[in-house]
C-alpha cells in the first residue's frame, strides 16, 4: 500500500513568482515526514504539489520531478484524479461540505464518486474512520446533522476522518492539529503513529514537539530572504535534526532563536 516519494529539483511557481526553489528529497514508505519552517516558506505549497492540488490555482505550475513508486506524477499522461485517489489530503483550515450531514461528509469520498457499496459496509467505514479520528463518541448520536454545526476542532477531525475513509496510500496533512486541544492532538498523533504501519504520511506542523514526537524524518524549509523563494535547508533523521542539526538556521529555528 504505502508508497515511496522521490522529489527531484522541484520548482513551484505562482504565475511568474517562484515560491519554492530546487527541492530534492526522498520520502520513505511507512514513515512520517514532518515539514517545518517559518510561515510563508512554502510548506503548504510543497505539500500541495505532491498530489497535484497546486495546479488548481490559476496560473500555478510546477517544474521538476515527483516520482511516486517510480511513476512520474507530472508526466503528461497522468490523470490528476487518479493521483488524488491514492494521495489524500487534510487541509490547514477545516472544510466540511456544508450541504452534507456528518455521516455524508465522512462518506463523501465514496458517495461523491458514486461507488456502489452496501449500507452496512458504508456504516462500518464511517464508524471506523470517525473512531480513528477520535470523533465517534462526540457525534455518534447526531450523524445526520450538518457537518458545519461542529466546533472548529471537531470539523478538523471530521476532515481527517473524511480523508482516511477512502484509504489513500499517502496522506498529506497540513497543520492538522493547529485548531485542536491537547487531548485531540494527542489522539491525532496516536492515529498518525497507527496509520504509519500502512501509509506514507507527510505532515506540516509549527509545533516542534509534535514533529519530534510523531515523525521519523524532518525537513526544514526556510526563506532565502525577504521576497525570495523558500527552499529546503536540511532533511534528516528527526532525532539528528533535533539534537545535532547540520545547519545553523535549523538549529536557531528549532531552539526558538529565530528572526
Amino acid at each position: 500500500m504505502a508508497k515511496r516519494i522521490d522529489v527531484a529539483d522541484l520548482n513551484i511557481y505562482y504565475g511568474e513568482t517562484l515560491a519554492v526553489q530546487d527541492v530534492s528529497m526522498s520520502i520513505e514508505p511507512r514513515s512520517v515526514t514532518a515539514l517545518i519552517g517559518p510561515s510563508g516558506c512554502g510548506k503548504s505549497t510543497f505539500l500541495r504539489s505532491l498530489n497535484r492540488m497546486h495546479e488548481l490555482i490559476p496560473k500555478a505550475r510546477v517544474a521538476g520531478k515527483v516520482m511516486v513508486d517510480g511513476q512520474d506524477l507530472y508526466a503528461p499522461d497522468v490523470d490528476p484524479v487518479a493521483v488524488r485517489s491514492q494521495i489524500g489530503m487534510v487541509f490547514q483550515r477545516p472544510n466540511p461540505f456544508p450541504t452534507m450531514s456528518i455521516y455524508d461528509n465522512v462518506a463523501a469520498g465514496i458517495k461523491l464518486n458514486a461507488k456502489r457499496m452496501r449500507t452496512s459496509e458504508l456504516d462500518e467505514i464511517v464508524e471506523r474512520s470517525l473512531r480513528q479520528a477520535n470523533l465517534w463518541d462526540e457525534v455518534k448520536d447526531r450523524l445526520d446533522k450538518p457537518g458545519t454545526g461542529l466546533s472548529g476542532g471537531q470539523q478538523q477531525r471530521l476532515c481527517i476522518a473524511r480523508a482516511i475513509a477512502v484509504r489513500p496510500d499517502v496522506l498529506l496533512m497540513d497543520e492538522p492539529c493547529s485548531a485542536l486541544d491537547p487531548i485531540s492532538t494527542q489522539k491525532i498523533e496516536d492515529l498518525i503513529t497507527e496509520l504509519k504501519a500502512d501509509y506514507t504520511i507527510v505532515i506540516v506542523t509549527h509545533n516542534m514537539q509534535q514533529a519530534a514526537r510523531v515523525s521519523d524524518t524532518t525537513a526544514f524549509f526556510n526563506l532565502r530572504g525577504i521576497g525570495q523563494p523558500g527552499q529546503l535547508v536540511e532533511i534528516g533523521d528527526t532525532a539528528t535534526i533535533f539534537s545535532a542539526p547540520a545547519n545553523k538556521a535549523t538549529e536557531d529555528y528549532i531552539s526558538g532563536r529565530f528572526g
Binding site: 489530503m89 483550515r93 469520498g109 461523491l112 473524511r162 480523508a163
Partner: peptide
Amino acid sequence: PAELREAAYALAVPKWRTIVKVVLPTAG
C-alpha cells in the same frame, strides 16, 4: 468557497462531479 472544491478534488472527485454534487447544492 474554493476550499470546498479543493476538498472534493482531494477526495479524487472529478471536476464535473464536484460541480454537480458539491458546488451546485451549496449554491442551490
